[in-house]
Design a protein around this nucleic acid. Structure first.
Length: 378
RNA sequence: GGACAUGUAGCUCAACGGUAGAGCAAUAGGCUGUUAACCUAUAGGCUGUGAGUUCGAAUCUCACCAUGUCCG
């Protein structure tokens, strides 16, 4: 059955759980981290490494970016994004809601939808809840996201409320269009509603109730890690997860650091995505169990130890800190590849290890023992 | 040996009478549903050396040193 969420083990001491989320492109063990592949490519990582070394179970694409380039004609002619990019496992597409927020310069949000100017050629386009569902049908993602507005973290209450209510009306329209359309490529597609409400508990609560009414295959928590204090983010997750159905996956959008992810898993989140492992990797930052490394720092110049001798990724086992230091300083493309592979492998290993401890029943003590080191700078 | 040119931050160059700036390199920091192989900060120069003109010289003059090009 597509999109069944089979919970293997719920942690007794926390809200963490270990499950399998079934899709027609394969099973996703949760908690899971999903590498971001905005334009049909996880930057600097090719599919064989994603599959074998990193062992990503699902990746992201972005509706806004794919719609602008290569465009829907090409994607439909290719037979959807899976075939276009040679990725057989599940794909989740973000709806472009975040771009509505981050490309605020040239946007106009109205009841009908959002008009914006392409950052590529300046051409004008409109996204509505209806056509965003249509575009995601054409992309053929396994999990489609509702079209939402993602307001800044420090938005005042009135704006947060208005924005959330608009997102709710847009969700109603997304669900309607979802129900009246069919997949184009023979595999079922899920639609995840997105909970908004900024840092206001009452709004978050209302939004979670509104989303839960849709009886969806899964739910997303959006609008976090956008400028509000981290503690507020954790509180909002608690408020929302109290309301969202326990037997469906919960996806915390765009988060985050390894520590953020463990805290959110403890609060009952199952799915994560973030550009941090890939972007920060390209910019010379490595995540490890002992803390974060700025590989550009002079102190790595002569460190001839392998990046991680026990890693599932060959690059981690065969290349040294000193070599990666050299490659990144020299702006060699191989450096971007190694750093990206390392960080994604670490993130997938992080959630895999968390999952194992949930099943073994000692998640809370394990988390407490590792979390202090994760964000330390070394 | 001679003529001409050029000597300014590690490198490439600005500033051409009012007491030195940039890019790159260096050294750090940042990055949370990717417009990001990106952005920010810091450090680094008694302007080749010595004398002179001037209220004031990287800037004008002279000598020397170095480098380059050309001519013998």
């Amino acid at each position: 059955m597509p999109f069944n969420f089979d919970i293997e083990k719920s942690d007794s001491a926390t809200n963490a759980r270990a499950a399998i989320f079934h899709t027609e492109h394969g099973d996703i063990p949760t908690p899971i981290f999903m590498p971001v592949g905005t334009v049909g490519s996880v930057k600097a990582v090719h599919q064989a490494e994603l599959r074998n070394d990193i062992d990503a179970k699902i990746i992201l694409g972005n509706t806004y970016h794919l719609y602008l380039r290569p465009g829907m004609e090409t994607l439909v002619a290719a037979g959807g994004l899976h075939r276009f990019m040679n990725w057989e496992r599940p794909i989740l597409t973000d709806s472009g809601g975040f771009q509505v927020f981050s490309l605020a310069d040239s946007r106009k949000i109205k009841e009908e939808g959002c008009t914006f100017k392409s950052h590529i050629d300046g051409s004008r386009h409109t996204f509505t809840p209806e056509n965003v569902i249509g575009i995601q049908r054409q992309i053929g993602s396994d999990i489609m996201m509702a079209f939402d507005e993602c307001p800044p973290g420090e938005s005042p209450y009135d704006y947060a409320k208005k924005s959330m209510e608009l997102t709710h009306r847009w969700l109603d329209r997304c669900v309607q269009r979802y129900n009246e359309t069919e997949p184009l490529y023979g595999h079922e597609q899920a639609l995840f509603p997105i909970v908004q409400g900024c840092k206001y508990s009452d709004l978050r609560s209302r939004s979670a109730h509104h989303a839960a009414e849709k009886n969806a295959y899964g739910y997303a928590i959006g609008g976090l890690a956008v400028g509000e204090p981290t503690e507020v983010m954790y509180q909002m997750i608690e408020v929302v997860n109290e309301i969202l159905p326990k037997d469906r996956p919960r996806y915390l959008m765009g988060v985050g650091t390894p520590a953020n992810i463990l805290e959110a898993i403890e609060r009952g989140v199952d799915m994560f995505d973030c550009v941090m492992p890939t972007r920060n990797g390209r910019n010379g930052m490595l995540f490890t169990w002992n803390g974060t490394v700025n590989i550009k720092n002079k102190k790595w110049e002569r460190c001839f130890e392998p990046i991680d001798p026990t890693s599932t990724a060959e690059a981690d086992r065969v290349y040294t800190y000193a070599y990666l230091h050299h490659l990144i300083k020299a702006e060699e493309l191989l450096g971007l590849q190694i750093a990206s592979i390392h960080n994604l492998t670490f993130y997938l290993n992080l959630v895999r290890t968390a999952r194992r401890h949930i099943i073994e029943g000692d998640f809370a003590s394990w988390k407490a023992s590792v979390i202090g080191n994760l964000m330390r700078r070394i």
